[in-house]
Measured scan of single mutants.
Amino acid sequence: MPEGSASLQLAVGDRVVYPNQGVCRVSAIDVKEVAGQKLTFVTMRREEDGAVVMVPEGKVLAIGVRKVASAE
């Protein structure tokens, strides 16, 4: 991610809310080559049905992904 860009610090195992998809758990953060460029992807699995969603790390905030609020 370019320096100075806002990002959401995620780790494998974090629970997040993905708008219009529901609650997901981060299952992987991997670098993949797409069209000759190396990009970091956040892979999330929906808790409702296990569907897998992959989002480029740089788009996580723009999409509206946020961490699940704690009970505290």
Rank of each mutant, 00 (worst) to 15 (best):
M1T: 12
M1K: 13
M1S: 13
P2R: 07
P2F: 09
P2K: 11
P2T: 12
E3K: 07
E3V: 12
E3R: 04
E3N: 12
G4F: 09
G4A: 13
G4H: 11
S5L: 11
S5G: 13
S5R: 08
S5V: 12
S5D: 09
A6W: 09
A6L: 11
A6M: 12
A6P: 12
S7Q: 12
S7H: 11
S7F: 12
S7N: 11
L8I: 09
L8M: 10
L8T: 08
L8Q: 08
L8K: 07
L8A: 08
L8V: 09
Q9G: 09
Q9C: 03
Q9R: 14
Q9H: 11
Q9M: 09
L10V: 09
L10N: 01
L10E: 01
A11T: 09
A11W: 06
A11V: 12
A11Y: 09
A11L: 08
A11P: 01
A11G: 05
D14R: 01
D14M: 07
D14G: 01
D14E: 03
D14A: 03
D14Y: 02
D14Q: 04
R15K: 07
R15W: 15
R15E: 05
R15C: 00
R15A: 05
R15P: 02
R15D: 02
R15N: 03
R15Q: 06
R15Y: 15
V16I: 13
V16M: 03
V16D: 01
V16S: 00
V16N: 00
V16Q: 01
V17D: 09
V17E: 08
V17L: 14
Y18P: 01
Y18V: 15
Y18Q: 02
Y18G: 05
P19W: 07
P19A: 09
P19C: 01
P19H: 06
P19V: 05
P19L: 08
N20I: 05
N20M: 09
Q21T: 06
Q21S: 07
Q21F: 15
Q21D: 03
G22R: 04
G22F: 04
G22I: 05
G22P: 02
G22Y: 04
V23L: 13
V23K: 03
V23W: 06
V23N: 04
V23E: 04
C24Y: 15
C24S: 01
R25A: 04
R25G: 01
R25K: 07
R25T: 13
R25P: 00
R25Q: 08
V26E: 00
V26G: 00
V26F: 01
V26M: 01
V26N: 00
V26R: 00
V26D: 00
S27N: 05
S27R: 05
S27L: 15
S27K: 06
S27P: 00
S27V: 15
A28Y: 05
A28V: 04
A28G: 08
A28S: 14
A28Q: 07
A28M: 06
A28D: 05
I29L: 05
I29W: 02
I29G: 00
I29D: 00
I29Y: 02
D30V: 14
D30T: 14
D30H: 15
D30M: 11
D30W: 15
D30Q: 10
D30E: 14
D30C: 07
D30K: 08
D30N: 10
V31M: 07
V31K: 05
V31R: 05
V31H: 06
V31L: 06
K32Q: 09
K32C: 03
K32G: 04
E33V: 13
E33Y: 13
E33M: 13
E33C: 05
E33G: 03
E33T: 11
E33F: 12
V34E: 06
A35C: 05
A35D: 14
A35M: 10
A35S: 10
G36S: 03
Q37S: 07
Q37A: 08
Q37M: 11
Q37D: 05
K38I: 10
K38Q: 09
K38G: 03
K38R: 10
K38V: 09
L39D: 04
L39M: 13
L39W: 07
L39P: 00
L39V: 15
L39H: 15
T40S: 07
T40H: 04
T40E: 01
T40A: 06
T40I: 12
T40F: 06
T40P: 02
T40N: 05
F41N: 00
F41K: 00
F41P: 00
F41W: 14
F41V: 09
V42F: 08
V42P: 00
V42Q: 00
V42C: 01
V42K: 00
T43E: 05
T43S: 07
T43M: 08
T43H: 06
T43V: 14
T43P: 00
M44Q: 00
M44L: 14
M44A: 00
M44E: 00
M44N: 00
M44H: 01
R45N: 06
R45W: 09
R45Q: 09
R45T: 13
R45C: 01
R45G: 01
R46W: 03
R46C: 14
R46D: 01
R46T: 02
R46H: 05
E47M: 06
E47Q: 04
E47F: 04
E48I: 14
E48G: 08
E48S: 15
E48Y: 13
E48Q: 10
D49T: 05
D49N: 06
D49F: 03
D49I: 03
D49W: 04
D49E: 02
G50I: 03
G50W: 05
G50M: 04
A51W: 15
A51E: 08
A51P: 02
A51Y: 10
A51C: 05
A51S: 08
V52K: 06
V52L: 14
V52Q: 06
V52F: 12
V52N: 04
V53T: 05
V53S: 04
M54G: 02
M54C: 04
M54I: 15
M54E: 11
M54Q: 09
M54P: 02
M54N: 05
V55P: 01
V55D: 03
V55F: 08
P56K: 05
P56M: 09
P56L: 13
P56V: 13
E57C: 07
E57I: 15
E57W: 15
G58D: 15
G58H: 15
G58V: 09
G58N: 15
G58Y: 15
G58C: 07
G58Q: 11
G58L: 11
G58I: 10
K59I: 14
K59W: 15
K59N: 12
K59V: 14
V60R: 03
V60E: 04
L61F: 08
L61T: 11
L61C: 05
L61Y: 10
L61R: 13
A62E: 15
A62I: 11
I63L: 15
I63N: 09
I63D: 15
I63W: 07
I63M: 14
G64S: 06
G64L: 12
G64Y: 08
G64V: 08
V65A: 06
V65T: 05
V65G: 05
V65F: 06
R66Y: 14
R66I: 15
R66Q: 13
R66K: 14
R66D: 07
K67E: 06
K67G: 05
K67C: 13
K67L: 15
V68N: 05
V68A: 07
V68I: 15
V68H: 06
V68E: 07
V68R: 05
V68M: 09
V68P: 07
V68K: 06
A69G: 13
A69I: 13
A69K: 10
A69H: 10
A69L: 09
S70N: 11
S70K: 10
S70G: 11
A71Q: 12
A71F: 10
A71W: 09
A71Y: 09
A71L: 10
A71S: 11
E72H: 11
E72S: 12
E72G: 10
E72M: 11
E72N: 11
E72K: 09
